[in-house]
Design a protein around this nucleic acid. Structure first.
Length: 752
DNA sequence: AAGGCCCTTCTTTTT
DNA sequence: GAAGGGCCTT
């Protein structure tokens, strides 16, 4: 297939800055690969003079393959192609002499980051209840993405002051651990280029051409990075679509598109509008949805693939039914021969939604794959083994040390570990890991006197193992070291406890071992780095005929013949956390837009009136985004009858005109009626009606209600969850303090 | 030191 | 409805 005029214009654009605004399905990946091929084969650019940044490692691999197919592998040599994070990691290893790290620094993932924040809070005597590590880390990460150092951290509130102190200590701890977190990879590289003229010139000279995919998802650190890298040749080719910007929450700023136009004055702008992916009905629905966003440039999406089928809407009674409907439909369309399993994808807003879907696919025996790196790398056993390898590779890694020192249990507990930390801190220039190695050298070490006699033998034994692994790592391959560690600690016996779960865990460890084996010819550095920077999409395997389950975020850049978007409920999509933030709400809409535009032929939209979340049942109302899709594009949505249903719902719930416009989600956890009657007989809510708070009559055990208990006396309801006889209320009594009671068991008298 | 039990919190989304 | 933290017991 040949390029259309706009694609061709992009591929062959002359030197200088170029901005390609590429709608979904407009062939941007093709443009990027063809341009790289064009530069090398037509313009005499050498492979190593090109840097291309993609969104996932998988995309990078595919792009490299396609370039090699176009021009021959020998010409693609030296091409630097990868994600921002992996490209930065490569540069940082090479330039590590300019940095306060040594070359075997490790990369801390979000769990590790959390641990470091906790440590910093503890050292600074800050209450981690008042300052949640998760949220504190959020502030730190945001600052980093904006290239704000602890010194420059703006403080307008007391909380800012606290965060600033934690941030400063957090960075020190990372350096002590010889570790960088995800953000550091970008930030440290950006700062290095900014501050070190030699380094900057080296790379800016080298990269004659820079190409950036998914430009709308770059944050300040990434933008600064490419600005410096392009500072000599200024040949920078960015591809993006602000309508598909869905990472503002992690610092991405689509305004970088504007910034780019300004900083690289007057880039050539090329619009790719023709869609080669979807039927027109799908594009029309997508446009109708995205049109609702303000401050966007109108784009007309068109394809010549025909009108296609209408979208299909299904409102399930509950989330279980929703999942069953998806599985049934997949079976139906695959058995009719209309599609293969691998043509089908199910997309959802939150990972928690995947569980029911996977269960229904298992029940229906539909081959499927679940996208998500966390799925595997987040497993306890996988993390444990990686922590062992990381510690041996980088003994300064206190996070890994703390993780594995008691796994399996070896008689070293909290006390000994704290002493280890404390002694290490007192002896400056000694990390706990190094201290452990020192202790293993024998009983003569002066540090022994700080420890209790009970700790001596376990500590000494573990230190000896550790020292042995360190020595072994010099001569063994990765998989050999892997085996040795597992054998030394008896990990197989530890995991295989006779349960099926134990067998599963061991299987995961063996899976990790197979991956480690692939790195035997390479290095531990590469193995650990690959494992740390693996993205969700990277876990997508091809080849087998299987349906795909994935989040809307993970679906970006992908396409499927048949797409199911589930959970179109207000509170799920859009997510309830965005209700009060118009900008975030627009991002939710873009996310929906991304999901819609993944579909080639058929799009199913689903929701469930009743949904189990956090263990209790919530009534959901229909997603507001559904209103944006014109009726003539969708079937299964009986708008005409919703009026009457609404009336019914009103009468059942008790009409409350005061709240009739409220979009507030009615959740059982906050305001579920305590009444045990009629639970199963009430009509199913429909339309928007169920979005109302519970009527006064039924909300006996609302938060704040004053009650009297026959034994404990007067109290106030703090919380209530569950329903009917299962309802559990938390009450603070004047006499005995906080109690949790089952409503079905005791009689509570409601006080005026 | 370690295991068990109960409580709280938690969920967006990801490199 | 899981997972982590605090508190208790062995």
């Amino acid at each position: 297939m040949s390029l259309n005029p706009q694609q061709n214009q992009a591929v062959t654009a002359e030197d200088g800055p170029v901005l390609v605004l590429a709608g979904p399905g407009s062939g941007k990946t093709r443009v990027l690969t063809q341009r790289i091929a064009h530069l090398i084969s037509q313009k005499g650019v050498r492979g190593y003079q090109i840097l291309a940044v993609t969104f996932t490692n998988k995309a990078a691999r595919e792009m490299k393959e396609r370039v090699e197919n176009l021009i021959g592998p020998q010409f693609a040599q030296g091409l630097m192609l990868g994600t921002f994070h992996s490209v930065c990691a490569r540069i940082l290893r090479r330039e590590v002499m300019h940095l306060p790290y040594d070359s075997n620094f490790v990369i801390f993932d979000s769990d590790d980051q959390q641990v470091v924040v906790k440590r910093a809070l503890k050292e600074l005597n800050i209450d981690d209840k008042r300052y949640r590590p998760r949220s504190v880390h959020g502030y730190i990460s945001n600052a980093k993405n904006e290239l704000i150092s602890p010194d420059n951290f703006p403080t307008t509130t007391y909380r800012d002051e606290v965060v600033k102190r934690v941030y400063a200590r957090y960075q020190e701890l990372l350096i002590e651990n010889n570790a960088m977190d995800f953000d550091d990879l970008l930030v440290v590289t950006a700062r290095l280029l900014e501050e070190n003229l030699g380094v900057r010139e080296k790379y800016a000279e080298r990269f004659h051409h820079i190409l950036v995919d998914e430009f709308q998802d770059t944050n300040m650190a990434q933008y600064t990075l490419i600005k410096h890298l392009a500072s000599v040749h200024k040949n920078i080719f960015c591809v993006g679509d602000s309508d598909q910007s869905v990472y503002a929450w992690r610092g991405a700023d689509y305004r970088n598109l504007r910034r780019f136009e300004k900083d690289f004055n007057n880039p050539e702008i090329i619009l790719l509008e023709q869609n080669y992916r979807s039927k027109q009905n799908i594009l029309d629905a997508a446009m109708a949805v995205i049109k609702q966003n303000t401050n966007r440039r109108h784009k007309e999406l068109f394809s010549d693939l025909g009108t296609g089928n209408k979208l299909i809407y299904f409102e399930a009674g509950n989330d279980y039914e929703e999942a069953t409907y998806v599985a049934d439909t997949v079976l139906q369309i695959t058995s009719s021969g209309a599609a293969r399993f691998s043509d089908c994808a199910v997309m959802y807003r939150t990972n928690a939604q995947s569980r029911l879907l996977e269960e229904s696919f298992l029940r229906a025996q539909i081959p499927h794959k679940l996208v998500g790196a966390q799925r595997f790398y987040g497993r306890r056993e996988v993390k444990d083994v990686i922590a062992y390898l990381r510690l041996v590779h980088n003994p300064s890694d206190q996070v890994s040390l703390a993780r594995i020192i008691g796994v399996p249990r070896r008689g070293i507990g909290k006390k000994a570990l704290e002493t280890l930390y404390q002694v290490a801190r007192e002896a400056s220039n000694l990390t706990p890991g190094a201290l452990l190695l020192e202790l293993s050298s024998g009983t003569k070490s002066p540090y022994w006197e700080k420890f209790t006699s009970r700790a001596a033998s376990p500590l000494s034994n573990f230190g000896k193992l550790f020292a042995d692994w360190r020595a072994s790592s010099e001569i063994l391959t990765i998989s050999e070291l892997f085996d040795k560690i597992l054998l030394d600690i008896g990990y197989a016996e530890y995991l295989k406890d006779g349960t099926e779960e134990g067998e599963d865990r061991w299987e995961n460890v063996m899976e990790l071992r197979r991956m480690a084996e692939e790195f035997d010819e390479r290095s531990m550095t590469e193995f650990l780095e690959t494992v740390a920077l693996i993205s969700d999409q990277d876990t997508l395997s091809e080849g087998q005929d299987a349906a795909t389950l994935l989040t809307l975020h993970a679906a970006k850049g992908l396409e499927y013949g048949v797409v199911f978007i589930v959970g179109l409920d207000d509170g799920i999509l859009p997510h309830s956390r965005t209700f009060d933030e118009p900008e975030e709400m627009e991002e939710e809409r873009r996310l929906f837009y991304v999901g819609i535009t993944r579909a080639k032929n058929q799009l199913y939209l689903l929701r469930a009136a009743e949904r189990r979340r956090y263990g209790s049942t919530d009534w959901m109302s229909e997603s507001r985004f559904l209103d944006d899709i014109p009726d003539n594009l969708i079937i299964g949505k009986t708008r005409a009858s919703s009026g009457t249903s609404r009336e019914k719902s009103y009468s059942w719930m008790g009409k409350s005109s005061r709240d009739s416009k409220s979009k507030t989600r009615w959740t059982s956890s906050s305001s579920k009626p305590s009444s045990t009657s009629a639970k199963r007989t009430r009509p199913k809510p429909f339309g928007k009606a169920q979005g109302k708070p519970a009527p006064a009559k039924e909300s006996t055990y609302r938060m704040g209600t004053r009650i009297r208990h026959p034994e404990f006396g007067d109290g106030i309801i703090l919380n209530s969850r569950g329903d009917g006889d299962d309802e559990i209320v938390t009450i603070v009594f004047e006499s005995v303090g906080i109690k949790r009671l089952a409503v079905g068991v005791v009689k509570l008298e409601v006080l005026g």
